[in-house]
Design a protein around this nucleic acid. Structure first.
Length: 521
DNA sequence: CTAGGGTTAG
């Protein structure tokens, strides 16, 4: 791209809108003489943009430390010369950010590049996506930059933003940061109320920090009036750590405080019993719900979620016949199964190695006019892989694409894993290539872990090189391999090393040490 | 994205 050349030669300096404007003019002048690649009207715009971003940003690959401002500038140029700013609507930007989800550094680079376009401003939802990605990368610098950019744009923190950040903090082992953020919400222009309090409790409970949630609830209950949602969140928290007795206590406390348990409350407990292996208690609870529901007690009458919970719970406990009976019974009771109910039944049959009955249920749901979703395909494909029917699994993968649900990263990962287990590394690597092709579905940490581990079973020198390249690639995307993975790959490279690869091995080794230094920061 | 049901292996 010639117009960018004089620009690249300059020392890097802070992006500057005026300078960019001048460069835009030079750039578009040049393009008017060449035929610029114009996206087809019927091609997927987010996909085109993602491909451009991925093929651009050369120095994002320079060691995991993140890209420089200069990268954002050149990307901004490339974007503005290929796409009209008007076409970069919030919906399109969000969709690109989602597509680049598994390549965090480049997603953030894209976000930053757009900020440099004159007259462009990000929507709150785009800020949320970018914050989510930065927080997942544990990139404090980007988080703070994004927050100050957001403040400068006059956009206060929303509850959604708070939920995202709190969730990431809790997931990173810093639940206290989530609590602190909650306590400082008013500084960010976000209301501290029962809603945001519930979000905080929910985040803590979902990361199994129920005790912390419960004590916070006790100490702050005076300031935020608890509602039914608050109690449901806490009950679910106890259920998640398999403490159904404590969940029942919450239920009692709820009633004592004058709040009526809802159908959601009952479904939470129902699920809790099955989750903690109390199958009989779960079944009795379900019967009780049905009995009380008959007396026109609508907060107890099982709904489609209750039935799905029971079908799944019984099935996982090995009682697939009883599960099937409940499934048939729900229709008789005037409650139609949902796609999730079918998914539960199919999964449960697959787990019992009854793949043929599972496929019969799949056909049954088609004939009843249901449209399978991604989860349906994933459970069926998993079942087939587990039964060693790899070719049929691949067939379903094709089928899901032609039916309009693109395989997800989970689909790819599970099929790749099974190909590798069968010793067919090439088929696994083929699928990796297919994922990256057209930025269809970017590989994640699991993908790399599965494939890199698989590269060791054949003890081939060339496999070690592939493993080495994948480690480099995953670090570039912001994923940290475990220490033993690094060592394993390095050892593999050295042990199998021959003259031919020696230089590459050496370069790689230096690169790894540089990366590790960067990672430590 | 304020709560409940389907995708994860050993």
């Amino acid at each position: 791209m010639p117009p960018i050349l004089p620009f690249c030669g300059e020392p890097l300096c802070r992006p500057n809108a005026h300078r960019l404007l001048v460069l835009f003019r030079i750039h578009s002048l040049h393009l008017s003489f060449n035929s610029a690649p114009i996206p087809q009207a019927n091609t997927d715009l987010p996909s085109l943009i993602s491909i451009l971003v991925i093929n651009h940003s050369p120095t994002a690959a320079s060691g995991g430390a993140g890209a420089s401002d200069g990268d954002a500038e050149t990307l901004a140029l490339a974007l503005s010369s290929s796409f009209s700013i008007l076409s970069l609507s919030p919906a399109i930007v969000d969709s690109v950010l989602k597509r680049l989800w598994n390549d965090g550094p480049r997603a953030l680079l894209f976000f930053r590049a757009l900020l440099l376009l004159p007259g462009f401003s990000h929507a709150p939802s785009s800020f949320d996506h970018a914050l989510d990605i930065a927080a997942r990368l544990r990139d404090r610098r980007s988080i703070h930059l994004l927050l100050s950019d957001r403040r400068r744009a006059g956009l206060p923190l929303s509850h959604r933003t708070f939920a995202i950040l709190a969730e990431r903090f809790a997931a990173a082992g810093k639940p206290d940061s989530a609590v602190r953020l909650f306590l400082s919400l008013h500084h960010h222009g976000c209301r501290q109320d029962t809603n945001s309090f519930n979000i905080l409790l929910d985040v803590l409970c979902k990361t199994r920090r129920v005790r912390k949630a419960a004590s916070l609830f006790r100490s702050l209950n005076g300031r935020f009036r608890a509602d039914a949602v608050t109690y449901n969140i806490l009950a679910d928290g106890w259920c998640r750590v398999k403490r159904t007795a404590a969940a029942l206590d919450v239920l009692k406390e709820m009633v004592d405080s004058g709040l009526e348990p809802t159908l959601t409350t009952h479904n939470i407990l129902l699920k809790g019993f099955f989750r903690s292996g109390q199958v009989n208690e779960g079944w009795d609870f379900f019967l009780q719900m049905k009995r009380r529901g008959k007396k026109d007690d609508s907060c107890c009458r099982p709904d489609v979620i209750s039935y799905t919970t029971v079908v799944h719970g019984l099935g996982l406990a090995g009682q697939t016949e009883k599960a099937r009976k409940v499934f048939d019974e729900m229709i008789a009771h005037g409650c139609l199964p949902s796609v999730a109910t079918y998914n539960a039944l199919i999964q449960v049959l697959c787990k019992k190695n009854e793949i043929h009955s599972a496929l019969k249920v799949f056909d049954e749901m088609l004939s009843r006019g249901y449209t399978p979703n991604v989860t349906t395909y994933n459970v069926v494909i998993r079942g087939l892989c587990h039964a060693g029917e790899m070719e049929r699994a691949m067939g379903f993968m094709e089928a899901m694409r032609s039916e309009g649900s693109e395989p997800t990263v989970q689909t790819y990962n599970l099929v790749i894993r099974h190909w590798c287990e069968e010793g067919e590394m090439e088929k696994g690597l083929d699928l990796l290539g297919k994922m990256k092709d057209e930025a269809r579905c970017l590989p994640n940490l699991d993908t790399y872990n599965v494939l890199i581990s698989a590269m060791f079973v054949r003890r081939r020198p060339e496999d070690m090189l592939v493993a080495g390249r994948m480690v480099v690639e995953m670090v570039e995307k912001g994923y940290l391999p475990r220490k033993f993975m690094f060592n394993k790959v390095l050892n593999g490279l050295l042990v199998t090393g021959n003259q031919c690869f020696a230089r590459e091995i050496l370069r790689m080794q230096e690169r790894f040490t540089r990366m590790r230094r960067n990672i430590r920061l």
